[in-house]
Amino acid sequence: MSGIEQGSSSDVLDAHERARFEQLVLPHLDAAFNLARWLLKSREDSEDVTQEAMLRAYRFFRGFHGGDARAWLLQIVRNTCYTWLEKNRPVELMAEFDEELHAQPSVSPESLAIAGDNRERLSRALETLPPRFREVLVLRELEGCSYKEIATITAIPIGTVMSALARARKRLERALTQPPMQEANREL
């Protein structure tokens, strides 16, 4: 578990701390749920995991000494999601390998615009990406996080956020414009 979750972790907070939590952390519940939903690809599982993460954040709240509350919460949500995936869908976390991107054929903006107009297709393409690529895209494009926040949340060095996003975008573009074989067959 990452550094920020350590520290004093007395289970019971008082009403004052509760009010502070409501004010600083709870407003980011939507962002927390959205990240879980895209990492776990299921609304139902995301509800359980978000609930668990929120309670965990509450317990560790004394260790939060100000700063970016959203990044602090999303880091806990992400850790909780990965723990859940390791336990329930370990295969998904293993299926990661990095291909040579320079060898990929380029995608035209026109074909991308057409494919991107289909919400279903976009959503499915995003779900085919390995979690580590999916999360940087969700954080950047859906939550509008800065590189610094992405680095905090995903525990990758800030210097590699840019290249992680570059790879993730290439993968998404490919998934959008060139559907995998089995999918093409299914659609026939």
Partner: peptide, 11 residues
Amino acid sequence: ALLRSSLCESA
């Protein structure tokens, strides 16, 4: 495309 399709989901 990502912005237009508003993929964000609320709790």
